[in-house]
Nucleic acid binder design. Structure first.
Lengths: 197, 197
DNA sequence: TTCAAAAGTGTAGCGGTTGCACTTTTGAAC
DNA sequence: GTTCAAAAGTGCAACCGCTACACTTTTGAA
């Protein structure tokens, strides 16, 4: 455990810490899904997880954050979708990424419940949106690199922003795949026209 | 004052109410600009305006709302820009609308300070964005009507959303006019290609 | 003059969040 | 095995935005 050790190896301390964090997150998710976000207080979550409120806030920066755990993977997946897109255009690669994500979620029926909770709770909606749009810069940079544009190119930033917002437009529709086609079709044509200009 | 009276005529009661509201709004704006949003408490604002905290919250739904007064005109201006666009395409009409708005703001140097405050305060950024995107549905409906599409057409909704978010992308840039050209150029081309499909 | 609605007040309280001083646990060095 | 400092966790008090409540004052009109 001195050097060159795999990162997955954790001491008892780290493991216990993760365990505490997990039990808080679990308690929160369960209670939120059972009774709704506004009907559960942080005190009750802490009690359920058998920790103090202070401890809870040492692990999570806010009540909303309790529900949005493990968000780091999303950004890298997003960037990866652009980077390893094969012959596809960038808008189409993003379209495929979202469609695939939607399909993946369809497997987990629990996810729909989670999503409804978020959609129906203003505070969560907002928080989720904020978390999501945080990826804009990373995505814009990836697009710029892939196309050889300057890192702060306006069109790249715009495409990144539009793609991220496209998700909201699409997920509100019944036929998500068709919606994705239309919305990203719009971006695709605009992008292609701009590219050759 | 019985019937057929102009709406601008107000009794003493209404005038006093508006006056109270105004003095609260003024106090809040002044204090926020002087010391920053998070450095001023609602109690202090209420004291400065010489009203109780309870009264303050009877006039404004939240602390953030104190800074965002008079927002109703924006939506109708937005819709009007689409409706009375002459021979221009819808994306170009929106582009012109934003550019013109940016120019109008440039006259008022006070506006830049206001905008910086909003941009630098997360809570205000979010609130402003939320207020702004409220117009999405109205704009989408106007676009749909203008193009003869069904009221809930996905592309119309997407265009409305993108146009509203374009503002954020554009306002972050130094050369706003150029940025507007590029961003709305992207939407213009995508929209035109989609239209004839 | 009378009266009900509207505007405003003060207090008490809730819920999320933080600072603080404190105890307990843990890992590692001696 | 003892020792020690850092890390994790605790409990309390308090702040802040916001609301409910019961209340007084003002206002407009019958």
């Amino acid at each position: 455990m001195r050097y060159g050790e795999a990162v997955t190896e954790l001491g008892r301390r780290e493991r216990k810490k993760l365990q505490t964090r997990q039990s808080i997150s679990d308690a929160a998710t369960r209670l939120f899904l059972e009774r709704g976000f506004d009907e559960v207080g942080v005190k009750e979550i802490a009690d359920t997880a058998d920790v103090s409120v202070t401890t809870l806030f040492k692990h999570f920066p806010s009540k909303e954050a309790l529900l949005f755990d493990e968000d780091e993977a999303q950004e890298s997946a997003l960037v990866a979708a652009v980077r390893n897109r094969g012959g596809k255009s960038i808008p189409m690669a993003l379209r495929d990424h979202f469609v695939q994500a939607a399909r993946g979620h369809a497997d987990h029926p629990q996810f729909e419940i989670f999503q409804r909770l978020v959609l129906e709770t203003p505070a969560l909606r907002e928080y989720g949106h904020r978390m999501w749009t945080r990826h804009q810069d990373a995505l814009a940079r990836a697009i710029a690199e892939e196309t050889g544009a300057p890192a702060d190119d306006v069109r790249c930033a715009a495409l990144a922003r539009f793609a991220l917002d496209a998700r909201d437009v699409i997920f509100g529709r019944a036929d998500r795949e068709r919606a994705a086609d239309e919305v990203f079709g719009l971006l695709e044509h605009g992008w292609a026209a701009d590219q050759q200009a």
